[in-house]
């Protein structure tokens, strides 16, 4: 066993400096619900753990320009407690809330769920559908990155050495907008998505869909933003024909694998089903918004 250092930087700059010095042998600790499990399983063996929870802003949620800035280490339970964000972005909050158990919810973070880069991460399709952007800090300063551009494959991200996610921005929600996230698991909890679908859409006064984003989880090496699925909805009143098109577009985008959790055929078919169902829930929310 190698020796292990643990640091609690008090600022973004300090964290960036620590990460830069560690030359790739550091891991970020937010909730630790993935990191500690991976360390115990011998999957990772970091030399340095950088706990980002003491950095100002990393554990707070603030309103900003009609939207929200959510610290990368905010725990699921903390987000679910917020009535305002739960009302504005119920899809994001319910997706985050599906991760793990009550105990896990006390620790698990959006930043960790994204950077663990599992294709089945529950919060990611919802964040992508909502159009969330991540603030990435690193040796070269800060950059703003759409959430869908962070994961590049299972366990891999587009973050450069020394970079980490500081926070997420959920945009101001346009009038008549609703979002939803659905996943399929064989059980009712304590499981990993076999398929996950996030949908965010906007309806005009006549009930016509004017904008939509559809994101699929667990059906490809990364969470997928599916423009064709959005196109199927835009201009429609979410009638049966539009939903069938959505279903087909979602299925067409799937590039899943056969594994212990599901088959290619199953994941593909269910992605279409959940896309339709999530779109209808999002539309209901859009109408009552």
């Amino acid at each position: 066993m190698s020796s292990l250092q643990y640091a609690t930087p008090a600022s973004v700059q300090e964290a960036v400096a620590l990460l830069a010095k560690a030359e790739g042998k550091a891991r970020i600790l937010a909730g630790g619900t993935d990191l500690l499990v991976q360390m115990r399983a011998g999957m990772v063996d970091p030399a340095l753990i950088v706990d980002i929870k003491k950095i100002p802003g990393l554990r707070t949620v603030t309103r900003e320009g009609g939207g929200y800035r959510i610290g990368a280490a905010v725990a699921g339970a903390e987000l679910s407690d917020r009535a305002d964000i739960s009302k504005d972005w119920p899809g994001v909050v319910e997706a985050f809330d599906l991760i793990g158990s009550t105990q896990i919810q006390g620790r698990a973070s959006l930043g960790g769920n994204l950077c663990n880069a599992s294709p089945a991460a529950d919060s990611v399709p919802a964040l992508v559908a909502a159009g969330a952007k991540a603030t990435v800090a690193g040796p070269g300063g800060t950059r703003i990155v759409p959430v869908e551009e962070i994961p590049t494959g299972p366990g891999r991200t587009s973050l450069k050495p020394g970079e980490f996610i500081v926070d997420f921005v959920l945009p101001a929600k346009a009038a008549g907008t609703g979002d939803a996230y659905l996943r399929l698991i064989p059980r009712t909890e304590m499981d990993i998505a076999v398929v996950g679908v996030g949908v965010c859409l906007t309806l005009d006064a006549a009930g016509v869909c004017t904008a939509a984003r559809v994101a699929l989880g667990a059906v490809a090496p990364t969470v997928l933003l599916v423009p064709d699925a959005a196109k199927a909805l835009v201009g429609s009143r979410l009638d049966e024909a539009a939903l069938q098109k959505l279903d087909a577009a979602a299925q067409a985008a799937c590039r899943p694998i056969n594994d212990k959790r599901g088959t290619i055929a199953y994941r593909t078919k269910v992605a279409g089903v959940l896309a339709r169902r999530a779109a209808l829930i999002a539309a209901d929310r859009a109408r009552t918004n």
Partner: peptide, 16 residues
């Protein structure tokens, strides 16, 4: 064995 743990050896949980 591909599922040697309670995550993927899917025993029912109480809420099921």
């Amino acid at each position: 064995l591909a599922n040697a743990g309670f995550l993927d050896y899917r025993m029912p949980v109480a809420s099921d």
